[in-house]
Design a protein around this nucleic acid. Sequence first.
DNA 1: TAAAGATTGTTATATAATTAACATAGTTAT
DNA 2: ATAACTATGTTAATTATATAACAATCTTTA
Lengths: 211, 211
Amino acid sequence: MSKSNRISMSVIRRLPRYYRFLSELNEQNIDRISSTKLAQIMNVTASQVRQDLNCFGGFGQQGYGYSVSQLKDEIKNILGLNNDYKAILIGAGNLGKAVAMHMNFDTLGFELTACFDNNERKIGQQINNITVRDEAELEDFCSQNHVDTAFLCIPRVCVENVLDKLYSLGIRNYWNFSHYDINARYNDTLVENVHLSDNLMTLCYRMNNNN
Amino acid sequence: MSKSNRISMSVIRRLPRYYRFLSELNEQNIDRISSTKLAQIMNVTASQVRQDLNCFGGFGQQGYGYSVSQLKDEIKNILGLNNDYKAILIGAGNLGKAVAMHMNFDTLGFELTACFDNNERKIGQQINNITVRDEAELEDFCSQNHVDTAFLCIPRVCVENVLDKLYSLGIRNYWNFSHYDINARYNDTLVENVHLSDNLMTLCYRMNNNN
DNA sequence: TAAAGATTGTTATATAATTAACATAGTTAT
DNA sequence: ATAACTATGTTAATTATATAACAATCTTTA
């Protein structure tokens, strides 16, 4: 984390991609790579690779390149994937379940510690060793357990209500699958949005204009 | 679609957001809005709003602003949401199910016409009036029915195999939830990726550096 | 161990995206 | 009908991002 003046979002959003490709190379027991080679594989320019990496420090060596496993670990550290941020999931519908079952949170810096829903039929269900709790227990749980992040997998109309509660309980970080604009209501929050329908609309546009 | 020389991806990816906010305004029976007002609501600059919209034509009127419902419809047309692209879903696991049940495809320019899985237990299940078919039927189905797009909700290791088949059947548009790099294998394809873990890693980074 | 080759880190250049400025044209109020 | 506003469309300026260039330095080989 040597020279972190202020890293641009463009760079930050590329880091997971570097991490993925380096992990693959590592699994293939390739222990050395040049920016040119890595750029080819990732379909970017070598310049970009070198500039991106140099935002965080000189991990390479002239005439040699980069050590795959070292670089992978560096990026893992930069991303902070060794963290153990406590997360709760709000909404145990299809999307919530998919998210809970599909992701390896422990390799992503998180631990899913609880799951809440307000639907009678969902409460009590098991998802990956976690029992779905009644949303009414949210306040109790959050005051008794440290919670860093909330994953919101509930319909847009339900968000405001839940968000106000979560915010009042001190939660400031959100992984948001709804279309509710969290930052507009609380601007001291940190939000990553997953707008699936936006993504699909973009595909639609591109299919129409084929580009 | 008047002055569509070449629209930048930055602009294209903002269109769904405009569409969402305009739809909201429309539901609130607000029939008129200025770029300044819209920009405030969306937390962007008025310049950007005007510039973005003017990529596609002069939808506003000096001294008045924009008609909300007209502008909404224009953007809907630009995005091509009136289309009826035939889509198939590959993978009826949690993620695939979530996607199938959660999205209103008809409002997004698509129609989900079939769903495939290679897991015995999944085959025959019903998802939103669609029966999960055996992946072995994929070839038959695609030759008997027109298919525009495939939604890939299968593990990375399974993609290559399925992709080769889909490509050979003429499918060139993909909504990809796996980490397989489709464009690297077939560069004449149109791909929108949903990389959930990349997104979560980004959140992790931002929590660490709180920005 | 010295010369040739490779590849980084970094600075300079080019391109893209965003924001600002403003003349033009329509709206509103009197 | 006219004057005072309002807000667009568009061009200009600024800022951000991506690419290219290259000197510095480590590696490899003979």
